[in-house]
Write a protein that binds this DNA or RNA. Structure first.
Lengths: 129, 129
DNA sequence: CAGCATCCGAACCGATACTG
DNA sequence: CAGTATCGGTTCGGATGCTG
């Protein structure tokens, strides 16, 4: 998962080998590209939308999410929720009652993401032609 | 491409018949979801990185891009550049010389995107697990 | 140097059906 | 209600090889 490479977009001097140049292969610098981390998760088709919904509406049930993301099947939705929960961007809260109820909400970290996502989303809807 | 639908993440759901539950401030106007537009393009594997590179380094040649995005093959890179150019986020400038030279740079619109992308990227590298 | 064409595996996502 | 299992279609993207 935490793939390492030198993409040059995050670390400027990626071409230069580490000190000593003991490694002739010039394999990888210690550049970790953010895109491979959180941003990889975020680029999932519905990930941003889920974050946006949870950010705007607060704790939301599974069914309502599915309702809002009409084109997403339950399988797809589940996998997205899993991944977001794994990344600790959202939190899953399951209530012990019948019928079952599960609510998803943003973690503090997810809220930070949402903050940074907003301008992007707003701009995107403006630029939409 | 510019698919239209109501996802509920950008404007309250309108499609919900919800007997009696007439949403208070429902902008039932056709909801255009930004994710399907620019953000769709942006979620391409290297799109964000390209924008980030061009933003940080200014006009950049094809070869250098390929150099920085080591894992991207030329075919992949080309298709990304095409798509970004189509979306008018980047500009392709071809010089009439030998050997051929082509430079890519951000359009004003691309620069706006880059602006909104920065906080996200910065945060992502911090949050890197 | 820049970049398209092709092949092909991998990932993604929707539909359906079924469980706790 | 909240999922999981499975299947199949579609897209993505990496490798290679070839043009201008």
């Amino acid at each position: 998962m935490a793939q390492q490479h030198s993409c040059g977009c995050c670390s400027p001097t990626s071409a230069a080998p580490a000190a000593g140049a003991t490694t002739p292969e010039t394999t990888e610098t210690t550049c970790y590209c953010p895109i491979d981390g959180v941003l990889g998760t975020v680029s999932k088709k519905y990930a941003m939308r889920i974050v946006a919904i949870l950010g705007a509406a607060g704790p939301t049930r599974y069914g309502e999410l599915q309702d809002r993301l009409k084109s997403a099947s339950s399988a797809t939705l589940s996998s997205h929720l899993d991944e977001l929960a794994d990344a600790e961007l959202i939190e899953r809260r399951s209530f012990d009652e019948v019928p079952p109820r599960v609510e998803y909400s943003l973690t503090p970290r997810g809220r930070e993401l949402e903050t940074r996502l907003q301008p992007l989303l707003e701009w995107a809807s403006d630029e939409t032609s």
